[in-house]
Amino acid sequence: MSSYYGRPVIKEPVWTWQIPTYFFTGGLAGASSVLSLGAKLAGNERLSKSALYVGAAADAVSPMLLIADLGRPERFHHMLRVAKATSPMNVGAWILLVSGGASSTAAALELLGRLKPVKLLAETVAALAGPPLATYTGVLVADTAIPVWHEGRHELPWIFGASAAASAGAAACMFVPPAEAGPARRLAVGAVAAEGALMQGMELRLGTTGEVYRRGAAGKLALAAKALAGGGAALLATRGGKSRRSAALGGAMVCAGELCLRWSVFRAGFQSARDPKYTIGPQRARVERAGRSAG
C-alpha cells in the first residue's frame, strides 16, 4: 500500500488527559443519576442518595475537565452559542448542562433537605439526561474520521453505556453498605460482563482496524481494563455482598478498569490515526469493491 512518506492522512486528536477522564466521569454521572432514581423507585433510599451524590459530584467535575481541555477555556460558554444536532459535542454540552444542573440541584436540595417536589423533579430530569450523557461520548468519538472510532460506531455507545453503568454500580458499592448495594453490585457485574463481550465483538468485527486495541498503549490499557474490571467484578460478585472492604476494593477496581477502558479507546484512536494504513486500507478496499476509481 502506498502512502506519502508513511505520514498520516488524518490528524490525531488534540485532546489531552481531561477528555478520557471526562468520558469516565460523564458516564459515571449519567448512569448514577439513573441508578439513583431507580433506587428511589425501588425504595432503596441509601443507594439512591449515594448514587445521587456520586452523580452530582461527577457531573460537577465533568465540565471542569472539559473546560480545562479547551484551547480557549474562557470561551467555554460558546458551546451553548448554537443548538446543533449535527455536533455530538454540542448536543452533549446541552445534555451536560441539563444533567449537571439537575443533579447538582437535586444533590443540593437533598443536602439541605428542602423543596422535595423540586428535588424530585430535578432527580427525574437528571435521570432522563443520564442515559444520553453516558452514551453520547461514544457517538462523539465515533463521529470522527478516526478509523477505529468511526468503524466502531455501532458498538461504542453501547460500550460506553455499559462502562458507565459498571462504574456507577461500582462506585455505589464503594459507598453503600453491602446489604443495600445489591442492585449496584449486580449492575456492576452485569455491565462489566456486557462490556467485555461488546469490546470483544467490536474488535473482532473491526478486523485489521481493530488491531490497535492489541497494540501499544491502547493494548496495555485494554488489558489493564479487562484485568481491573474483571477482577473487581469477580470480587464484587464473590465477596461484595459480605465484606464492606471487598465491596470497596472491588468497586474501586471496576472504576479503575472503566477509566482504563476509556483511556484504551482514547489511545486507540491516536494509534489508528497515526498509521496511514488504517485510513487508506479500508478506503482502498471499499473503492476496489465498488470497482470505481478513487477520486
Binding site: D143, H150, H154, P157, W158, G161, A162
Partner: peptide
C-alpha cells in the same frame, strides 16, 4: 452515519435504563 449513531445512542441509553432496572 450520524443518524445511525444516534440510533445506537438511543438504544444504548435505553439499554442502561433496562440494565439498571434489571439490576433492581
Amino acid at each position: 452515519h450520524l443518524p445511525q449513531m444516534y440510533r445506537s445512542l438511543a438504544a444504548a441509553a435505553a439499554g442502561i435504563v433496562v440494565g439498571i432496572a434489571a439490576a433492581f
